[in-house]
Design a protein around this nucleic acid. Sequence first.
DNA 1: GGAATAGTGTCTGTAAGACACTATTTC
DNA 2: GAAATAGTGTCTTACAGACACTATTCC
Lengths: 239, 239
Amino acid sequence: MTTQAEYLKNYDPRLFPSPLVTVDSVLFTVHGGKLCVLLAKRANHPFLDQWGLPGGFIDLQHDASTQATAERKLREKTGVVPPYLAQLASFSGPERDPRGWSLTTVYFALIAHADCQPHIIDVSDVAWVPLDSLQTQQLAFDHQTIVEAALQRLRQKTAYSMLPVYCLPAEFTLSQLQEVIEIILSHTVQRKSLMRRFDASEMFEETGERVATGARKARLYRRKAGVDMRNFSRNLMVE
Amino acid sequence: MTTQAEYLKNYDPRLFPSPLVTVDSVLFTVHGGKLCVLLAKRANHPFLDQWGLPGGFIDLQHDASTQATAERKLREKTGVVPPYLAQLASFSGPERDPRGWSLTTVYFALIAHADCQPHIIDVSDVAWVPLDSLQTQQLAFDHQTIVEAALQRLRQKTAYSMLPVYCLPAEFTLSQLQEVIEIILSHTVQRKSLMRRFDASEMFEETGERVATGARKARLYRRKAGVDMRNFSRNLMVE
DNA sequence: GGAATAGTGTCTGTAAGACACTATTTC
DNA sequence: GAAATAGTGTCTTACAGACACTATTCC
C-alpha cells in the first residue's frame, strides 16, 4: 500500500508507451471570392516539403492546454492569434503518421484575410489555399480528411449562428457578411433573413460611419465587446 | 539530407516528451426517472478509491483509434458496447492530472439501462450515479467538468434530434421516448410535436406489436436498420 | 361507466423564404 | 435620370406550441 504522494514520487511517465501527440489547426478565411485554408510547407520529415495544416508538438513547459499550443503555432506562422479558435475534434490511429500511433487535437479558426495577410506575405512556406484546389493537392497525413470535417462544422455553424463575422475585419458591412456566408455555404441567402438574424443576435453595434462599397453607402458595424455567439433555434435553409 | 525512410528508421519516439494520454467516456442512461452516468471506482493511483469516468490508456498494439479504446474500456466495465458512442472533445493541461501534463479524449455514449444492468450488477466498483447527486460527490481529475460538458452536448442534441432513443431498449413506445427526453431536458415536451418529429425522422418502424405500459396499449417501434440520425432544422423550445 | 394512457385534429405563434418596393449614391 | 447597391414592407410557408378532442384498455 502506497500513498498517492509516494506513487507520484516514483512515477516515471516513460514507462508507459504513449502515442505521438500533436496539435493542428484549420484556419479559414475568405479571399478573392473563395474560402481558403492556411497551409504550411513541412520543413521536417515525415512528408518533408509537402503541404499540411499548421501545427506541431505541445510545449509541456509552456502550453497551458492544447488550445495554447494551437495559438502559439498559429502565431508562429501568421504573427497573430485568430479572433475565433475552437476545438474541432481529435483524430487518432496507428496509420495516420508513419512514425507510429498518433493523436492530433485539431482546432478550427477564422480570421479576416486582411488581418493576417501582412504577416504571411513573402513567406514561401505558408500559403492561403482555396478549398476547391485541395481536391488535386496531396496533403500530409490525414489532413485532407480533417479539412473536410472542419468545413462541415463551419457550414453547420454558419446555418445557426453569425460565426462568419470572424472572417471579416473589425468593422464591416452587412453586404460583406452576406458575401462570406454565401461563399461558405456555396449558396445564396435571403438578405432580409440575414438582416433579421443580424439584429436579433444583438451581437453587433453600428459604428455610425457609412462606407461606399457599392453604389449607396452601407452602414458599418462592429462586434460588441464581450458578447458571445448567439445560436439561433432554426437553421438557414440549405438545399 | 536524409530520405523519409532513413528518418523513420532512426526515429525514436522517446526523444520527444509527451503528455500523458488517456481516453474516457461519459456513458449516460435514464433509470428510475433520473439521468445517470456510469462511474468507476479507481483501482489505482492517482485518486485511488475515488469515483471517476470509465477510461484508461490506449493500447497501441490493438486499438485502431481512441474510439476503439473507449469501446474496449466500456466493454470491460459493462460487458457491452453502447449503441451510441461519439467523440465529445479532448481536455488537456498541466494541472488536471497530478502526474503531469495530460490529455484525455472523451467520448459520450448512451445505452438502455436494461441492456447494461445485467453486466454491472454485483460489481462494486462500477455504478450508475444520478446526475443530481454529482454536485456533492468529488470526482477524480476534472471529470466533473467533463460530465457537465457532456450533459450540455446531450441536451443540445436532444433539442434537434432523436438521440435519446439510444437510452431505450431495441423496442420502445413513444411514451417511453417522451419520458427520457423530458428527463434529459428537465422539461416537458409537447407530445404532438414529438410525434410529428418522430414520423418526419423516418428513423423508426413499427414492430406491429402493442404493449400495455399504461391503460391503452401503445405501439412498439424499433430503429430502422442502417439509417442514421436525422437532424432537424429547428430546435425544440427550451425555456 | 370511470379512469388512465394512447393518439388525432386543428388553431395559433414564430421566424424563415420570397420578392416587390423605396432610398441613396455615382455616373 | 439610369444603374447599382442598401435597406424596408409584407405576404407566404414550415413547423413547433397549445390544447381540446377521440380511441382503447383495465377495473
